[in-house]
């Protein structure tokens, strides 16, 4: 057993981190958020690096790596709070790869893999990232009974200005006759989207913790760094606890997506239940540990809190995923394998 990235996977992740450290600085995140516009050059660079297609198989023009590699990239995307349609497009691609027909795959995956087309994965009536601009949308019925594939112009998307200006969101609805049925399991279509969103949340948690540690080591009150006070220390320890819990669950789910398909749906709920909770709590704690300054527009920590809120809700939050885990557990004890 080796519950860790391989050297190659580590290298992909490290390169991504370095690139984003210069291409998605907090100054750039702020200016993109305040002008409500992505940096188009960043998306182009990510496409040139092959990120949108990393987990799409080579027969459809992708990189043919796995969900583990994709999750590593999205974690770094969350760490840098990069603004781009990467999460939406890769969630869409994974859903088509999971649940699409052969013809649907052939039509869309090569274009999504290069980033020439962008996409999103949406549950009807709920917020989805980068929906208004998407060339293709996988739309899951609100009761999860089916999935449809829609070209962008077949769906009706109402753009919603959310609390998170680092990303664009919309609500997708469509006429019942619009688009094409997808033959696969809608739960499987959702699973990879949920787990890579969890990966983004892991990155958001880690960055929020890092930024907070830096702040509490530096900020002095009563003649000593506030990070020397036990109440602050214990809050930071809890932030680590939640971040690492989310990381364990998410890495497991990513591995299951590549190597243990029977546990993918369970793993995705485990990851999303844990990471959604961690995301909102760790970023909330980060604001608290910054004191009053954390509540100001000036400080950058609120961008992480806001993104975490949207990510936590996307493809269901902690509570519905916990209930799914309970249902799976109940099934296991009543019909032991």
């Amino acid at each position: 057993m080796r519950f860790d990235f391989t050297d190659d996977q580590q290298e992909i992740k490290r390169t991504a981190k370095e690139m984003l450290a210069s291409r998605s600085t907090l100054e750039l995140v702020r200016s993109a958020a305040e002008s409500k516009a992505y940096d188009p050059d960043l998306w182009k660079e990510l496409c040139d690096l092959g990120w949108p297609g990393v987990a799409i198989s080579e027969e459809y023009g992708g990189g043919g790596l796995g969900v583990v590699e994709l999750a590593g990239l999205l974690e770094e995307g969350g760490y840098a709070l990069a603004g781009s349609p990467l999460l939406a497009t890769t969630a869409c691609g994974a859903a088509i790869q999971e649940a699409g027909s052969e013809q649907q795959r052939e039509t869309w995956l090569p274009r999504l893999a290069t980033g020439e087309a962008t996409g999103t994965l949406a549950i009807a009536g709920e917020l989805a990232p980068d929906a208004a601009e998407a060339d293709v949308i996988v739309l899951i019925e609100s009761d999860r009974s089916g999935a449809r594939l829609l070209a962008g112009d077949q769906a009706s998307v109402s753009a919603v200005e959310t609390i998170d200006p680092t990303r664009r969101y919309g609500i997708v609805t469509a006429e019942e006759s619009a688009g094409e049925e997808m033959p696969g399991d809608p739960e499987a279509a959702l699973a990879i989207g949920a787990l890579i969103t969890s990966a983004e949340l892991v990155g958001i948690c880690q960055r929020s913790l890092d930024v907070t540690l830096e702040y509490v080591k530096d900020r002095k009150q009563f003649g000593r760094p506030v990070g020397s006070f036990q109440a602050v220390q214990h809050k930071c320890a809890r932030m680590l606890f939640q971040t690492e819990a989310a990381r364990s669950a998410t890495y497991f789910a990513a591995w299951a997506a590549d190597a243990d398909r029977d546990r993918l749906i369970e793993g995705a709920s485990l990851a999303k239940a844990t990471a959604s909770e961690a995301g909102v709590e760790v970023t909330g704690s980060a604001i608290q540990a910054h004191g009053g300054i954390g509540f100001t527009w000036e400080a950058d920590i609120h961008w992480f809190f806001k993104r975490a809120q949207l990510d936590a809700a996307y493809l269901d939050g902690t509570k519905p995923h916990r209930r799914r885990l309970a249902a799976l557990a109940a099934r296991k004890v009543t019909s032991p394998a």
Binding site: M1, D4, R247, L325, A326
Partner: peptide
Amino acid sequence: IAEAIGEIEARTEVTRLTAYRGLSTIEK
């Protein structure tokens, strides 16, 4: 009750996974 059970399911599994992740780190 279902949600509470789901929460403990998640934490129990996370405990196991984190323990194995810890071992992998030490081995490496």
